[in-house]
Design a protein around this nucleic acid. Structure first.
Lengths: 235, 235
DNA sequence: GAGTGGTCTAGACCACCTG
DNA sequence: AGGTGGTCTAGACCACTCG
């Protein structure tokens, strides 16, 4: 346990301070030289830790000024490494979620939209279907698939702040690193049209998402069907 | 001018070799130690160059083995900071462009899809309309709008390698830094359907792009209409 | 065991920003 | 002018992969 990479340690220390509110949007981190002294490491190590935070979009660096905390990301729309509720609420919109199918253990769907690793295949999956609303407009139908690595608790307890990602972070210490996406335009049909309350033939944006986590071989998959008539999807 | 960062130089040298086909999918790059000797730089510099290539998804690193060229990605990775031809050709697809309306000076369209800065507004714009094909399939109709800051030469000379972005780089020393995008699903109608050779009512992916450049107040705008039936759009 | 990438140290010079 | 991040050097030890 105690053994940890120096840069990872520093990275997590800084992340904690940011998430705890000690450092907030726009604040400057201690300079790289200060951090070398505070943590008794070289600048290379400090820079590696900061580079990781930049990758996570938690800070940004400005030459001549310093490392700035960025907890805004307003135009990150949907496609960044964030969940729906975190993103849209950041834009001062009233967001709500209607659960169509609560999280439940099942086998993986046949012909799953992404190839699965062997470990994922064996573990089975937890799937759920949710409807997303912004300002009382139905904007999205979301099918989510999570490999079941001892996460059956997901099926029993409500989500932290209603957010899957926050729950994964808080309860399972699982963090999303990056996301791959694949987009198509399709035509609304059948149940999808009914749930989204659009006519059959209405155009929808179909997004396949694959979220990579900090645990190897664990990815989370989502299939989004978006009615973009009123709200577009940005990044 | 000529002066270039060592790691950028190395990064580009390696990229060239990959794009030129000297190194292809699955091949191993020279090891980091070999590269230090070949280019007379330290390993830090080599690693920085390789890190950038990893970011660009051009290679992946495997501990104990080496740096592996990864040219997979079946679909159009369009949404990074790259032009269409650069992206798609990198995936071993035959790409072609059919010019519907050659670059020409004009006023900005009324109700332009992005708000313009005052300087952009005054300068007028150069617009063009192009059809993009992959493996002889029409996949995209692209409307591009460039503020005319002394770029009338764009209307006279063919593009460098057929690429707008390469031309902007080579001729005007204008580089793309990042891109904002906004996506919708729409229904093909009228001229759009005709040009893309799809039926009216066919779903299309409509992407608005705003490319930020290294010159302040100069952005380049594109409006894409994509037939995603055969090729999806990824990022 | 030889080679690879991953981590880390201890320095240095530079361009950039701000007071 | 002093501090900041960006780049770079010249080493070192480690865990991992492979023959």
């Amino acid at each position: 346990m105690g053994e940890q990479l120096l840069y990872k340690h520093l990275q997590q220390e800084l992340k904690k301070k940011i998430y705890a509110g000690e450092l907030t949007d726009g604040d400057l981190l201690p300079s790289e030289n200060e951090l070398t002294q505070m943590y008794k490491v070289t600048r290379t190590t400090v820079r590696k830790a900061l580079d990781e935070l930049v990758k996570e979009r938690i800070i940004r660096k400005e030459k001549g000024k310093g490392s700035v905390v960025t907890r805004d990301n307003k135009n990150l729309g949907l496609l960044g490494v964030k969940g729906f509720s975190q993103v849209v609420t950041a834009q001062n919109k009233k967001v709500s979620t209607k659960i169509i199918e609560a999280p439940a253990m099942s086998a993986w769907p046949e012909m799953f939209f992404y190839p699965l690793s062997e470990t994922e295949e064996k573990s089975g999956c937890i799937s759920m279907k949710r409807l997303r609303l912004v300002e009382n407009d139905i904007v999205m139908l979301e099918n989510t698939y999570i490999p079941n690595f001892g996460m059956s608790k997901l099926c029993e307890t409500p989500f932290v702040n209603g957010s899957l990602f926050e729950t994964l972070h808080e309860v399972f210490h699982l963090n999303i690193l990056r996301v791959e996406q694949d987009m198509r335009a399709i035509i609304a049909q059948g149940e999808t049209a009914t749930l989204l309350k659009v006519y059959e033939g209405h155009p929808l944006l179909n997004i396949y998402l694959k979220f990579y986590t900090d645990k190897k071989n664990i990815c989370i998959y989502s299939n989004l069907l978006c009615n973009t008539t009123k709200y577009s999807i940005s990044s």
